[in-house]
C-alpha cells in the first residue's frame, strides 16, 4: 500500500562526486516488496521546491525498517536533500510504481543488469534478489567518468561486473553497449535502468529474448492522477494509447513503450 511518512535519516554519505547515499528508517519500509519501485520525496516543508522528487529504492532492509537511495545532487531539490543529516526527518510518499519482476528470471539462468549513471541504484536491490533466487547476475555499469562512478565493488560481490565510462577514466572507454560487445556478454534476461538513449541502444542490440527497462520522466503527482509522465506505446506510437511512467511503470517489458 502507498503511504506517506516522516522517515528518519539514519545516514547520509557522499560516495562519489555529487553522488549521495541516503538511508532512511520507518514503517513504510515494510511496504517495499519489489526492486525497481520508487519513492516521492518532499525535501522541504516550504513551497520551494514545491514538487516532490522521484528517487529509486536501491536497497531494502526490512529487518531494521531501513531503505537506501543513491542520488545525484544536481538541482534545487536534490541539493537540499543532500544537506539532511542523521536524525533529520524526510517526508516520503511510497512505495510507488511497478518494479522489476524477479520471477521472470528462472533459477540457474543468467540475468544481465545494465545501469547508466543514476539509473544504477535500483539494480542493486534487484541483483541481491536475483542472487537469492539462484539467478546468476552480470552487471554492466555506465558512468560519465571515474569520479562519478559508485557501487562497482558492491556489485562485484554479487557477480561479474563491467564498467564503462564515456571518457575512458574507468573500465571500457565508451558506453555500456561497447562493454557488452567487448566482453561478448550473454544472458537469458536483461534488466536495465538509465537514460533513454541507452535503453534504445539496448533494445536494438537484442541481447536477450526477454527484457525489462525502467524509464524516467518529469512527474507531478507520482501516483497516476495528473498525466504528466505519459509515454506512447510501440503498438500505437502516434495514437491515444499510453502508459504512465509513475503508475504503470517505471519498469516496462522491453518493446512495450515507445522510446
Amino acid at each position: 500500500m502507498i503511504k506517506k511518512e516522516w522517515m528518519t535519516v539514519v545516514s547520509q554519505q557522499n560516495i562519489a562526486k555529487n553522488i549521495y547515499e541516503l538511508t532512511l528508517q520507518g514503517e513504510l519500509v515494510q511496504e517495499m516488496n519489489e526492486p525497481g519501485r520508487f519513492v516521492h520525496l518532499k525535501v522541504s516543508g516550504q513551497t520551494m521546491p514545491l514538487l516532490r522528487r522521484p528517487i529509486s529504492i536501491a536497497n531494502i532492509d526490512q529487518t531494521n525498517s531501513r531503505f537506501t537511495m543513491i542520488y545525484r545532487a544536481e538541482g534545487e531539490g536534490t541539493k537540499l536533500l543532500a544537506e539532511k543529516k542523521a536524525g533529520d526527518q524526510v517526508d516520503v510518499l511510497g512505495p510507488l510504481g511497478h518494479g522489476f519482476p524477479v520471477n521472470e528470471a528462472q533459477t540457474g539462468e543468467t540475468a544481465i543488469l545494465v545501469g547508466g549513471g543514476i539509473g544504477v541504484p535500483p539494480l542493486y536491490e534487484l541483483s541481491q534478489r536475483l542472487n537469492e533466487k539462484g539467478v546468476k547476475t552480470i552487471h554492466v555499469l555506465g558512468f560519465q567518468s571515474a569520479d562519478v562512478a559508485f557501487y562497482e565493488a558492491k556489485f562485484a560481490e554479487l557477480g561479474e561486473t563491467y564498467v564503462a565510462t564515456v571518457d575512458g577514466s574507468l573500465g571500457t572507454k565508451g558506453f555500456v553497449t561497447d562493454a557488452i560487445r567487448e566482453f561478448n556478454l550473454q544472458g537469458d534476461i536483461l534488466y536495465s535502468c538509465g537514460p533513454v538513449v541507452m535503453l534504445r541502444a539496448l533494445e536494438e542490440l537484442q541481447l536477450t529474448k526477454k527484457g525489462f527497462i525502467s524509464l524516467e520522466e518529469r512527474m507531478g503527482c507520482g501516483i497516476g492522477a495528473c498525466f504528466a509522465c505519459v509515454c506512447h506505446t510501440q503498438n500505437d506510437p502516434t495514437g491515444t494509447e499510453y502508459r504512465k511512467v509513475c503508475s504503470d511503470g517505471p519498469v516496462f517489458p522491453m518493446g512495450e513503450v515507445a522510446l
Binding site: M48, P49, R218, G220, C229
Partner: peptide
C-alpha cells in the same frame, strides 16, 4: 486525446507549469 509531448511539467518558484 493523447495530449502534448513530454516534458509536460516544470517547476517554478512556489509553483509549477503544466502542459498536459
Amino acid at each position: 486525446r493523447y495530449g502534448n509531448p513530454t516534458p509536460r511539467v516544470a517547476e517554478t518558484p512556489a509553483g509549477m507549469l503544466n502542459a498536459i
